[in-house]
Design a protein around this nucleic acid. Sequence first.
RNA 1: GGAGAGAUGGCAGAGUUCGGUUGAAUGCACCUGACUUGAAAUCAGGCGUGGGUUCACACCCACCGGGGGUUCGAAUCCCUCUCUCUCCGCCA
Length: 431
Amino acid sequence: MLDAKLFRSELAETAARLAETRGYQLDVAKLEQLEQRRKALQVRTESLQAERNSSAKAIGKAKAQGEDIQPLLAAVDSLGQELDQAKHELNDIQNELHEIISGVPNLPAEEVPLGADEEDNQEISRWGTPHAFDFAAKDHVDVAAQLAHGMDFEKGAKLAGARFVVLQGAIAQLHRALAQFMLNLHVNEHGYTEAYVPYLVNHDTLYGTGQLPKFGEDLFHVQGATEKQVPLSLIPTAEVPLTNLWRDEIADEEQLPLQYAAHTPCFRSEAGSHGRDTRGLIRQHQFDKVELVWLVKPEESMATLERLTEHAERVLQLLELPYRKVLLCTGDMGFGACKTYDLEVWLPTQETYREISSCSNMGDFQARRMQARFRRKGAKKPELMHTLNGSGLAVGRALVAILENYQQADGSVKIPTVLQPYMGGKTVIQP
RNA sequence: GGAGAGAUGGCAGAGUUCGGUUGAAUGCACCUGACUUGAAAUCAGGCGUGGGUUCACACCCACCGGGGGUUCGAAUCCCUCUCUCUCCGCCA
């Protein structure tokens, strides 16, 4: 959420910037009108409340002294009704304002290139050289099909439906090895605190990181056995629980920066992507991810984004997977981000780079929703933190990349050196 | 699953019986000043969060787990939800 003050004192500029960067049309006239009414109503409501408070005190005093309070009661007779009405009107307006404002995306950082979609993203760097195959390279589905136990989409469909998979044998083990390797790397070498978190979260938590109210249809919602139980939702990423660890908290300055890493499954309804990436493991309703989250002081967030991205890159480098780093343009960034790097891994059969990590600085956008704050030493007022998150990496897509990049002519798949200790020393998965 | 107790400011902990000047006693922690060579101890003062009006000074409003209700007035009474703790049962 953007600072409400932007919608009051700098409405025109904010609207122009949102249109320029995000193609987001802010209804300026409506906001102005609502804001005007809000102001009048709030002043009126609060002065009625002040009046009620002082009357109530006067009545209390008179009663204590044994005076007749009937005339005083008569004097405030109509006040209650008036106040009720003013409160309701104010409440309606504020709800309306909040609904509009909480649906406005974050403003991109200055240095983010202007653009409408992924066409305008900026390639920053490339690492590694795509392997030249002297045989016809297969995609990960076909590679896996040749192995003793593979990737079983039919079983996935039987058990749950489309976009679910069952992994078995060496592939399942490789999948686990990847997650373990990543988490160990970040915890042991990059300073992250390992966290185990709930996979089901409440609506306040989802609001905090920006999934609600606007993107509820991207999630799986879970209702307990009784109507009375509070509704929960499956996390679409560990960013949600990790970042919300500091919702409604005030940290001491010395506690920052905070950095968390967690390996969790992620659940996405993929409501808007019917027909996209239907083959293989690329786009599933359930996938595993190692997520990295930072909570920092505002002045440190941009430098932290670089570090966070390097940590994700390090995973690809150690796995020896060719990738490129892309700076997303204003139009392609997520709702809450002010700057995002995507890491894209090389997939030989698609002859293209596919997203495997997304690292974002959310600025104070989530922190404001969550009221995640810190207090500088000696300062009276708490300040909003900045939050960042990045995948380090998506486990399923990393598995895809390995199967495709490490396949050999005989149908076997080499195991990347760094994963071999996690595979009982095995160096290759045989057909 | 059954029975009971509880949720108050950074922490601890009064207030809830019998609603009234209580944004909330007291202690600890913390900050500022005095004393001191320095520190400790002591003394004095300060010390929650969010929001609104205002150039500002300042003033006002809301908040005692969440939501709703009763009332001129609710931390205090009623309803409801959530969470925590104790005992029994069950369970990975």
